[in-house]
Every structure is written in C-alpha cells, then in structure tokens.
Design a protein around this nucleic acid. Structure first.
Length: 567
RNA sequence: UGACCCAUGGUGUAAUUGGCAACACGUUAGAUUUUGGUUCUAAAGAGUCCAGGUUCGAAACCUGGUGGGUCAACCA
C-alpha cells in the first residue's frame, strides 16, 4: 500500500468522539458481557428542544451502531412538575427524528416500589436516616464548597425509628417538608453532592401515573443510577453538569450491585446555539409571556418549532453530527444549522415561483388574453422530480426588489432600458413605469417581450445578465408569508450576568407579509410541505394554512451574495 | 478559600494516541449557471492560553500559573 492509499483510507475513517471511544473499548474489553444498552431519560415537564436532539442522536445512535438497544425512560420523580401532555409530545418528537424504542418505554415511576425497598434496605444497613430538620437548617449544615458540613443531630437515629418514620411519611402522616430521608455518606466530602444527600421527600400532589399511591418520592440522585441499574443500562450518557453527581451515582450502584455488572455514566457538552437559548424554564417564560406564540412557534429552538419552521429531521441530525461531542462548553453558530437545512432542502425541495412583494409588469406587445403554459424543471438537482407547467400571460408580478428606477452598478435586474429573462419564459425589456407622484412608489412597469426568446425555443440561447421569477397576475394564488429572523439580537442572550435575556429580544423576529402571489400549483399544498421559492429561500406550508388561505413559513433564505454586495 | 471539569484559525471539531496542525461552517476571489442558488477551484485565517520540564521530537506527557465552567433545590 502506498502513501496515497493510506491517506485515502484515513479520510474514509471518520474520527469518533471520546464517548464512542470509551464505548468501543468497553465492548472490546468485554465489560458487561460486551453489550451496550443506553437510555434517553427526559423529564416530562416540557417540550424537547434541539439540545435534546443531540442527546437522542447519541443515545440511540451509539446503541444502533454497536448492536445494542436504547430505552426511552421518563424521569418522572417529581409529580408537581410533570404531566402526560409532555409525554406524548416527547414521543412524537423522537419518532419524528427517526428513532424508535420498540416496546421499551419505561418510567422512573415504574420503579418506585423497588426504590422504596432499596431505601428501606439502606436504613437497615445504617446507610440512611430520617432527618426531622427544616430545609433551611439542613442547608446551613451542608457547609459551602469551601467549608465542610456538620452532621445532623438525627444522623445516628435508631434504625427502628427511621424505619417507622419512613413508613409513616409514606402513609401521609407528616406534612410536606417536615422530614426527609437522607443517605449517610460524608458530611466533610469536598463534593457537596456527597454530604448526606436527601434521597426521599414528602410530596402530596398526585403523580400523573401513580396517582395518590405514594406520599414520598425519590430525588433524581436516588432514582437515576438505580433506574439505569434496573434496566441493565451499560452507558448512561448525560450532560456535563452531572459530572459532580457521578461519585454519588456510583456510590448507590455500589450499594445495589449483586454482580459485576455496572452502568457507566459519561458526560458530554450541552448544545448551545447562538441567538437563542435552551433553558426549558426560560423557553416556558417566552411562551407564557407571549413573546412567542407557543412551544411550536417557528422561532423556538424546540423540535416542534423547528419542524413547523420547515426543518427536516435529516438536517438536524446532520447538524448534530457536524458539531460533535466533547467536554468543551461551546456555543455553536446557527449558520451551521442553516447550512445543514439548505444542504438537505436543496436536494429535496421542488422549486416554485412565489413573489413576496409583488410589482405588476405589463408586457405591452404580448397578445391580450393569450396564456401559455411554460415548462419548468422542478429541481435541477434531481431530474426524477420532473417538470411542471406554469401559466404565463400579459400581466405578471415580479419582486419589487427586482426593479429599480436608477440601478446601482452590477444590478442585473429590471431597470429602464434593461433586459432580463423571466425564467422559463421570455426575455423582456423595460420600456417605462408608472410612479405614484405623491408617494414615489413604483406602481407598474411596462415592458416588451422578445417573442423569439422563449425558453427551449430556437432563440432561447440569447443571454441576458439577469433571470427573474414571476407569477402570472391572472392565475396567481394569494398567500400569507411569515418571515422569521433570530429571536434575539445577542449571540448569547441568557449568558449575560448583568442583563436579563428579555432585553435582547429582537422586535423584528417575525414579519408577516400578506398579499403575496404564488404560482397556482401551490393551491393544493398541504401543511409541512416544503418548497424552494426560487431565488428567495426555502418555505414550508404552515399548519395555519387552509385551501382558502395559504400560509407559508420561511425556513431559511437562500444565500444572497447580491444582498451582501449591496450592503 | 475547596473539589471536579475544560482551554487548538472568527465558530465548531480533527490530529492514526509523542512524528509535516487537518476538516466543516463562515469570509474573500475566480469559473460555471435561464435561481446573484447549486456545483467547482483557489485564497486568507491558528503554530495549539502562559511559563517551565521530560524527549531526537510535545497540541498531546509532567509541574506550576492564568482564564472559563460546574457544585452549597426537599429540581432534573
């Protein structure tokens, strides 16, 4: 093998993330029987966003690649925050992304019985105790990261007494907040998480799955690792902020284990995107305060928002693939996400004509009443997508931006005396225009067409600098088009210590255009259908769209080098 | 006055685990184009946070700094 071959081979082998390296090593070393089982563990307290997509791709992706399974597990240990509404949307979004958990749909609440028994077991072994102190006192005793904590006076309470109290807590005999169950670990540990963490608290709100069966509920730290253990998870992948929880995770598993089997927690960096934020709490505030129209507002980084905006699952997966998994706290440029959708939609979406800001062009020498159905290619990237016919007539709409009374240098569009091609039809020449004398607005443009230049015809090889999209006035369908811009005008709106994120809300993040004109073939377009409005961008039929009122969302504009030059 | 984690072009990641710092996005040119799209070609842009050390050789290993992050919910 020569050097070139070697090089080529290397390029074919994509580098794998540090997580995948760990997984591959574990499997190779025969850990846990050389198997891999992962899990995606959302809390059903909100909608999934693109950050979750990153976790989903990893959890399901690794399992698939290494011949294992990935479970869906709802981390529903806090009944006051959770709801079935969210369970359904989470499942829908995972499926939309293209992943499936077969029948392995689990709930941490399924393990409440086992968890309770394990807690009892820990009490019996002297490793847990009931604390009667208030939250405030416990917090004070915990110390600070710099100072060790002090032990609770209840730490050495009799096992029998703790057992009895725990049982009565669960029977509902005590008020919320009056007592907790704590693990007896180490109040002097430099890791705050290990300072006798609270593992059970009294909550009297009904749980969305177990109703009023329980009055005590396990904390995250007492549920997650154990749930992993019960399900035979081998690799428990989570985000960086859980790094400090790992010693406790391992501590509980150590108390629980009955064999060599061990789940392994590995942490990776969260997905951050410029000009938006991922905090579920803050996204909820945006919805509640009316700064967006709902969880699925196309400006939201939620999966349902991105879906409504016109993003494809493939583009999101591609994006996730491009940014990778590391331990660096990174903030990813949205332009990479936009690149990913454009790349995908360029291959997939049919081209159509849509005029956002119509300007009427009258072709003076075109016969009155004549209509020609001109043929257009649906997608130059994919011949299989075929062709379509679009009606052309004496009066057409073009984009207001495509005409200028006094054009700057290198303006390849319509202006007095200039020629352009109407794509798929004829070359036209601007002979004049009508301007409203009081407003200065151009109201009509008058042209003549060169009959010999019809596309596909014998004179069609004549070149002009510009080609415009257009819609026949008599045949156009009306549409509303919603243009979206970044929700915030700061790269990191929620990361500013002195400023509230609301300060950075972009007042122009949504622009609604009415009276847009689109080609008649779009009349039958259905919600979520995607198109490229030629020369403008990618658009998606909104769920508000009806047969009598078409509504499109702009997913992303096309790259526009003219707009750049023009600046 | 802590523990743990992190630091590579503008951004995100690579570097066959000690051997010529590479890729993608973005940017800038040029070519192609009946989309100022796409595609193609090229260029600019980091010498790897800093200072020492080990080594023939360090982005990688060691020591010490600096900077950033996480941890003190009866949230997850």
């Amino acid at each position: 093998m020569n050097e070139d071959n070697l090089k080529e081979k290397e390029e074919l082998k994509p580098s794998i993330s540090f997580i995948e390296q760990f997984i591959a090593e574990d499997i190779k070393d025969g850990k846990n029987g050389g198997t891999i089982v992962t899990r995606f563990p959302p809390e059903p307290n909100g909608y999934l966003h693109i950050g979750h997509a990153k976790a989903i791709c990893l959890d399901f992706g690794m399992a698939k690649k290494y011949g294992g399974k990935c479970n869906l597990r709802f981390d529903d240990t806090n009944p006051v925050k959770e709801d079935v509404e969210y369970v359904d949307s989470i499942k829908e979004d995972i499926h939309w992304l293209g992943f499936d958990w077969d029948n392995r749909e689990y709930y941490a609440s399924d393990y409440f019985g086992k968890l309770y028994n394990f807690a009892v077991e820990l009490i019996k072994r002297g490793l847990a105790y009931i604390d009667d102190q208030s939250a405030e006192i416990i917090s004070n005793q915990k110390g600070t990261p710099n100072q060790p904590g002090t032990v609770s006076p209840y730490r050495d309470r009799q096992v029998k007494e703790s057992l009895d109290l725990f049982e009565r807590m669960n029977k509902g005999e005590f008020e919320e907040g009056s007592r907790t169950l704590r693990a007896k670990v180490d109040m002097t540990s430099p890791n705050m998480d290990m300072r006798d963490p609270i593992i059970y608290r009294i909550i009297k709100s009904p749980h969305h799955r177990t109703g009023n069966k329980w009055n005590v509920y396990p904390m995250y730290d007492f549920a997650h690792g154990q749930s992993d253990y019960f399900e035979g998870i081998t690799h428990s992948l989570c985000t960086l902020e859980f790094e400090v929880h790992r010693p406790l995770y391992d501590w509980f598993v150590e108390q629980l284990k009955t064999s060599d089997y061990r789940p392994r927690q590995i942490e990776f960096n969260r997905l951050n995107l410029t000009y938006t934020m991922m905090s579920k709490r803050k996204l909820l505030e945006l919805v509640q305060e009316g700064n967006v129209k709902g969880w699925d507002d196309p400006r939201m980084p939620t999966l349902c928002g991105l879906r409504r905006r016109g993003y494809t699952p493939e583009s999101i997966k591609r994006f996730v693939d491009l940014i990778g998994y590391t331990k660096v706290e990174a903030i990813n440029d949205v332009s990479l996400l936009e690149h990913a959708v454009r790349e995908d939609l360029n291959m997939k979406s049919p081209r159509v004509f849509g005029v956002l800001n119509p300007l009427k062009v009258i072709i003076q020498n075109y016969p009155e009443g004549q209509v020609e159905n001109v043929e257009l290619i649906n997608n130059p990237e994919d011949e299989n997508m075929g062709k379509r016919h679009v009606p052309f007539s004496k009066e057409v709409y073009i984009e207001q931006d495509d005409f200028m009374e006094t054009p700057p240098n290198k303006f390849f569009r319509l202006a007095p005396g200039m020629e352009v091609r109407l794509k798929g039809a004829y070359i036209i020449k601007c002979e004049g225009f009508k301007k409203n004398p009081s407003t200065g607005i151009i109201e009509e443009v008058y042209c003549t067409y060169d009959k010999e230049t019809r596309s596909g015809g014998s004179g069609s090889e004549r070149k002009v600098k510009g080609t415009l999209h257009w819609v026949s006035a008599a045949h156009a369908a009306d549409a509303e088009v919603r243009l979206y811009d970044r929700l915030f005008n700061h790269e990191d709106p929620s990361g500013q210590k002195d400023d509230d994120y609301r300060k950075f809300l972009n007042p122009d993040s949504l622009k609604i255009l009415t009276g847009c004109k689109v080609e008649p073939s779009l009349l039958t377009a259905k919600p979520l259908e995607k198109f490229q409005f030629q020369r403008l961008g990618y658009f998606c039929v909104d769920s508000d769209s009806t047969e009598s009122k078409l509504v499109f969302n702009r997913t992303v504009s096309l790259k526009d080098t003219w707009a750049k030059v023009n600046k």
